[in-house]
Amino acid sequence: MVFKRRDRRSPVQIASEFVYPRGGWTRAFHYVKHRVRRLPDSPERIARGIGAGVFTAFTPFYGLHFVVAAVLARLINGNILAALSGTFFGNPLTYVPIGVVCLQTGHFLLGTQFEKGDTKGLMGKFAGAIGDLKNNLFAMFTDRVADWHGLAQFYHEVFYPYLIGGIVPGLIAGVVCYFLSLPLIRTYQQRRRDRIKAKFEEIKQLAESKADASITNPLGSAAGLNKDSSDV
């Protein structure tokens, strides 16, 4: 296959590269930045897509961030590819502070109390919710009794506060990234257009200079033709 990797990665390598990509996060950031700046679209639509992707990083829909970012970009007339790139604002280095901020904000807005135990037991509540889904799926085909306690606890203590609390910081981060990226993209695209225009002008001037030389020295051109014909 054309797009198949030559070196197959093991599950351990895939997981390790998700936490720390090959070449480091700095190189991955510059790669994403380079790809975004070269998108063939208007700076406004690209910046809106980046804002949508950054906002999506503050939502609890892990595993579906690409889908959510694409839908949001579509709704606000943003560039979908830029939105997908913007979701990389959420990564293993930022998920913890994003999660803490979203949970604190959500509990504050809902009038509930945020405790440190909520963050320390976050993975346990995730595991409990996943365990409930698995066990209740088996209960549909066996004699097991469905138990939704872990999933309900996860929804009320983690998912719903995270969902509500991520709106405000997500909007702030998305708007800030929009206004930061817009002038940068405009400047980059203008410089790129200027370089392309200068290159075409150089080619045009070179062609005109060759045409002028052939007009001002027609005898030399004829002599060159006669020489070529004599060689034949």
Rank of each mutant, 00 (worst) to 15 (best):
A129Y: 10
G117D: 12
V158Q: 12
I76M: 13
D132N: 13
D118K: 02
N79A: 04
F154H: 03
F88M: 10
F114I: 02
A129L: 06
G128T: 08
M123G: 01
V96Q: 12
T119V: 11
S85A: 14
F126V: 02
T87D: 07
V168Q: 01
P169L: 07
F138V: 00
F126A: 06
I167L: 08
A82M: 11
L133Y: 03
R144C: 12
N135M: 14
A152H: 09
F108A: 14
F154W: 04
Y162L: 13
Q104S: 09
D118V: 11
V100A: 07
A82T: 11
P97I: 03
V145W: 14
V101N: 02
Y162W: 15
T119P: 00
D118L: 09
G124Y: 04
G99A: 10
N136C: 11
A173N: 03
F141S: 13
F138T: 00
G150P: 08
P92K: 13
I172H: 10
L84Q: 05
P97C: 04
L84H: 04
S85C: 13
P92A: 10
A83F: 12
R144V: 13
F159I: 02
L122S: 06
A152N: 12
A146N: 10
T105N: 00
L163Y: 01
A146P: 07
F154D: 04
A146R: 10
G106D: 07
G111A: 10
A152R: 12
F88Y: 08
G150E: 05
G90W: 03
V168S: 03
G124Q: 07
G86R: 04
F88Q: 01
T94L: 03
D143R: 15
N136T: 12
A83H: 09
H107W: 06
D118C: 04
F126G: 02
F154Y: 06
L171A: 05
R144Q: 15
V96M: 15
K134E: 06
L109E: 12
T105E: 00
A83D: 04
G78H: 05
G78L: 06
F88E: 01
N91S: 02
V101T: 10
G165I: 08
P92S: 10
I80R: 00
E157D: 14
H149P: 07
I167A: 03
Q113W: 14
T119G: 03
Q153M: 11
P97S: 04
F159M: 12
L110F: 00
V158L: 12
W148K: 02
T119I: 14
T119R: 00
A127P: 05
